[in-house]
Design a binder for these strands. Structure first.
Length: 933
DNA sequence: GACATCACG
DNA sequence: GACGTACGTGATGTCC
């Protein structure tokens, strides 16, 4: 029986996407037990549908109903405005496979399910609502999306299913300050950060409503913009007219979407028990199918409690790791067999063997591949005749190897195929090796980064450690092939038979680890962290490292000489003062001189029984005696010379003339990067003499170094996470945050602030980030402990939210064994349950980790987005120093680079996290790093 | 290879 | 009540 849609009919339109995202975010990432398919969103979606149909809608009960979905990402709005919805985060990987299942679910409930390629659900909803209204029927749109509010009125209402609240014309007026017919005008002015609709800068909903109410509608307002009294508003409207008109076209819903169905197709139908229950069984939703069976008065299906399907994914069925079973690939036909296996499977574990850990100088020696546990091979390419009696070494290639270029040509389609996942352990290394050979390897997965996302703070993430821990297998140590110390050889000298076992084993282990880690990412809810903060950073870091930074050897060399001369003078002076000669660089000898021979006060022995002679100790002694003061000077120079001016020269690459650091993505438990070989994250800056070392870091001819750094990012994050209104407001107002803290704490007005009071407040602000203690603050400020404790007490009194945040964070760590950043990164705190002094360490680390980690996440997001943002500019990103990014840019592009990079950095938290405080970035440029910073 | 020291955020 | 203590890193030199 069909009823013609008309008066007396009531159409319900459900915004399907809203249901899905609500379900996805409300539920933990459930997986189907039998095969691990993610189904959390489907489960939530079905529960919401079930609740919807079982609800007694009373007089609002529908005669017609449909669930409307989005289909495709490109719509007419993208043609109007390329940046429309451009700030959307990519769909989480575990949600994507659930999208078709939500359509299936809708059909299983026997509810009409509609989507049209190239049209947003909102336009389909608008079209149907208009049709139904024009035929005299009623419409309820089940959604709380404000973009749909323009449709309300004339029999159309909205229903916020979560709050069970109906939204009528008054509701819309409450929200927008205007009636539904003027909602688009307000939206056009106010813009929308969620959909990236620009609007008029500086005008929000309140102001927009005010203007529209005054002038009647948007067109009149724009035509009469000259009459507006407020100069800034007037100018904005006149200047951005085109942008405002574009915004209106973006927010205006289209009531004329071409539909291939009619309202009559949407009539409410009872679900067919068999169809619905068989779908729910397939999904293995036990509770829900029992509930629905009861409601439908039929017998609930029995869903067998199957064990996870036996497959190669199940570690129990894997063959033991057996290096002698791996294949050596010696002819192109055999290689082709492996390539075919990889293409058929869609993924491969891969590892490269080279002559050096330094990727810039490494030569490719061989490649290993694994496609399933136990099935791995090694392709030797660059092994040399290992004539150990040949004093000069032999350059001849060993027999039985394929030509390197032929192998790379054959592998290129695999390495660059978007449909083949390349799995590696520390893929940045392999990606850099391949990049040196003109190959771009993508897409990738990295077991080291998976381990880091899963278990940061619990253990390290090197392959040997992971293999031992998760596979109970100790891989062949590289030492057994290369030897150690002076007699160590490079991998090209390793006999091929030995290399096959070692190299293929690495690929095999990597593949096994991948099979274990992949499902764990979902289970531990760190898939997004891995996919948005870890994996996409790999190619970014690889490019930065390969590019390197230009360092002027002559500048360093001159400084080294000057330091050596000064040190010689100081050393003579020190020996004179000591009355005898000794090794100034030996803390042990210095301690004996100071505290035994000279019998100075304050000698304290540490754990090992040696006197402490750190800078703080020497500084105290320096007020009394000359010797410790001279030693401090000597030490500063010694540090600068050995660690910087000497060592950096050895790191200049002979081929590029540049210094290529290596970032360790898994180096710091908090999410920060570490920089090694050389460490370019601790180049001196605090002392005047040290800072001059930065003059050796220079821009190439015609270029400039450009530095951008976040201002007070950790304090801003603290203000946000702890919810400290006074701090948040101070940041919004652009105040001097330390002076403001001092003013709040000590009651000193800002204009009477002394530098000493400010200095104390600054120390407290930093102390808070580190998990403050009276002892620590006292030592830092060199004041009595009781006084320091008094400061802290006053601070907590004034900002009680900080104390609450600290307590909550420690409690969270105790309850879960980890803390997390605003972006979901987990940092484990296994020591939190410890007793004694270790508990103090763990507490402070737990308090600091979410703050430091969130800052680290933010700059990572900026770095990941940076290549696209600067793609059209003549510049390269070179270095990251925790809150600073350093670029090298063509001289005339400096301003454009600063503008583009600043925008990315300041907006890096969006849209995943909306901070209550603005992020601000300071910028500078110059011929060298000292000038730019 | 452990330890002390000191460079950075 | 005593314990010990600011958070996160890497490189260098001494000494065993």
């Amino acid at each position: 029986m069909t009823t013609q849609f008309g008066k007396g009919c009531h159409l319900h339109l459900i915004d399907g996407s809203a249901f899905i995202f609500r379900a996805y975010h409300a539920l933990p990432p459930l997986t189907r037990k039998s095969d691990g398919l993610p189904i959390g969103a489907v489960s939530g979606f079905c529960n919401m549908l079930q609740r919807y149909i079982s609800d007694d809608h009373g007089p609002d009960a529908p005669t017609h109903v449909a669930v409307i979905f989005d289909k495709g990402s490109h719509t007419f709005r993208n043609d109007l405005y390329g940046l429309y919805k451009a700030n959307r985060e990519a769909m989480p990987e575990d949600l994507r496979p659930q999208m078709p299942l939500t359509r299936e679910a809708t059909r299983a409930f026997n509810i009409a399910c509609q989507e049209i390629e190239g049209f947003e659900a909102d336009d389909i909803i608008a079209t149907l609502a208009c049709q139904a209204r024009d035929l005299g029927g009623r419409v309820t749109i089940i959604s709380s999306d404000k973009d749909l509010m323009q449709l309300v009125g004339g029999g159309v209402e909205m229903l916020d299913a979560m709050k069970n609240r109906r939204i009528d014309v008054e509701g819309v007026e409450e929200k927008f300050g205007v009636g539904p017919d003027r909602v688009v005008d307000v939206q056009a002015l106010a813009g929308d950060s969620v959909d990236n609709v620009p609007g008029a800068p500086g005008i929000g909903i309140k102001t927009a409503a005010l203007l529209i109410n005054e002038y009647g509608d948007l067109e009149t307002l724009l035509d009469r913009a000259e009459e507006i009294k407020q100069p800034k508003r007037r100018q904005t409207l006149i200047e951005h007219r085109a942008q405002i008109e574009l915004s209106k076209r973006l927010v205006q819903l289209d009531c004329n979407t071409p539909l291939d169905f009619g309202l009559d197709d949407l009539e409410v139908r009872d679900p067919d028990p068999e169809t619905l229950l068989s779908f729910l069984s397939e999904m293995e939703f036990r509770t829900l199918s029992t509930r629905i069976a009861k409601a439908l008065a039929v017998e609930a299906p029995v869903i067998p409690d199957v064990a996870p399907a036996a497959s190669e994914d199940s570690a129990a069925d894997w063959p033991a790791i057996a290096p002698e079973a791996y294949e050596r690939v010696s002819d192109m036909a055999a290689l082709q067999v492996w390539i075919d296996r990889i293409l058929a499977r869609g993924y491969v574990a891969i590892d490269t063997e080279t002559t050096s850990l330094n990727e810039m100088q490494a030569e490719l020696v061989g490649i290993s591949l694994a496609v399933e546990p136990g099935q791995a091979c090694y392709i030797p390419l660059g092994h040399r005749e290992g004539a150990s009696d040949d004093l000069f070494g032999s350059d001849a290639l060993a027999e039985g190897q394929l030509p390197r270029d032929a192998v790379l040509s054959a592998l290129r389609p695999v390495l660059e195929d978007a449909a083949v996942l390349k799995i590696g352990q520390n893929m940045k290394y392999d990606a850099k090796i391949f990049a040196g050979l003109g190959l771009t390897i993508a897409p990738i997965d990295d077991t080291m980064l998976m381990s880091y996302a899963l278990n940061s703070g619990i253990h390290n993430h090197g392959m040997d450690a992971l293999s031992e821990r998760y596979l109970a297998h100790n891989p062949i140590p590289i030492k057994t092939l290369l030897g150690t110390g002076k007699s160590a050889v490079t991998f090209d000298k390793v006999p091929i038979d030995e290399a096959v076992k070692y190299a293929a084993e690495d690929a095999d282990i990597t593949l096994r680890l991948w099979h274990m880690f992949k499902p764990q990412l979902h289970q531990k809810q760190v898939t997004t962290v891995y996919e948005t903060l870890e994996r996409p950073l790999v190619p970014v870091l690889a490019r930065m490292e390969r590019h390197g930074i230009l360092v002027d050897r002559d500048v360093l060399s001159r400084m080294s000489n000057a330091f050596a001369q000064k040190m010689g003078g100081l050393e003579a002076e020190i020996h004179e003062l000591a009355g005898r000669s000794f090794n100034v660089g030996s803390p042990k000898q210095l301690g004996e001189i100071l505290f035994d021979e000279m019998a100075l006060e304050g000698g304290k022995k540490g754990k090992t029984g040696a006197y402490a002679t750190g800078a703080d100790v020497l500084e105290d002694l320096a007020t009394e005696h000359e010797l410790p003061a001279r030693v401090l000077d000597w030490r500063q120079l010694s540090k600068l010379k050995s660690t910087y001016t000497d060592a950096l020269q050895d790191h200049i690459d002979p081929n590029t003339g540049r210094v290529h650091t290596s970032y360790v993505q898994t180096g710091a438990s908090t999410g920060r990067l570490a920089s090694t070989d050389p460490n370019l994250q601790n180049i001196p800056v605090r002392s005047e003499e040290g800072r001059r070392i930065r003059e050796a870091f220079v821009a190439d001819a015609g270029k400039r170094l450009v530095s951008l750094d976040y201002s007070q990012i950790e304090l801003r994050i603290l203000a946000h996470v702890a919810g400290i209104d006074a701090l948040k407001q101070a940041f919004r107002d652009g105040l001097d945050i330390h002076a403001m803290t001092a003013s709040e704490m000590f009651g000193v007005p800002l204009d009477e602030m002394t530098s000493d009071v400010r200095r104390r407040a600054k120390a407290i602000n930093f102390g808070v980030i580190y998990g403050i203690s009276g002892f620590g603050l006292a030592r830092n400020l060199r004041i009595p402990r009781a006084e320091a404790q008094g400061f802290i007490d006053r601070y907590f009194e004034r900002f009680p939210g900080i104390r609450a945040y600290m307590d909550e964070t420690v409690e969270f760590a105790k309850a879960h064994g980890y803390v997390q950043t605003l972006f979901g990164r987990r940092i484990h705190t296994p020591e939190i349950a410890a007793k004694g002094p270790r508990a103090g360490f763990a507490k402070r680390a737990a308090i600091n980790a979410p703050i430091q980690g969130t800052a680290a996440d933010i700059i990572r997001r900026a770095m990941i987005r940076m290549p696209e943002a600067i793609a059209d500019l003549p510049c390269k990103m070179l270095l990251q120093v925790h809150d600073e990014l350093l670029f090298e840019a063509e001289e005339d592009a400096v301003d454009a680079v600063i503008t583009a990079a600043r925008e990315v950095m300041e907006g890096a938290a969006d849209p995943a996290v909306h901070l209550d405080v603005p992020l601000t970035v300071d910028a500078g440029s110059g011929m060298n790093w000292a000038e730019a910073h």
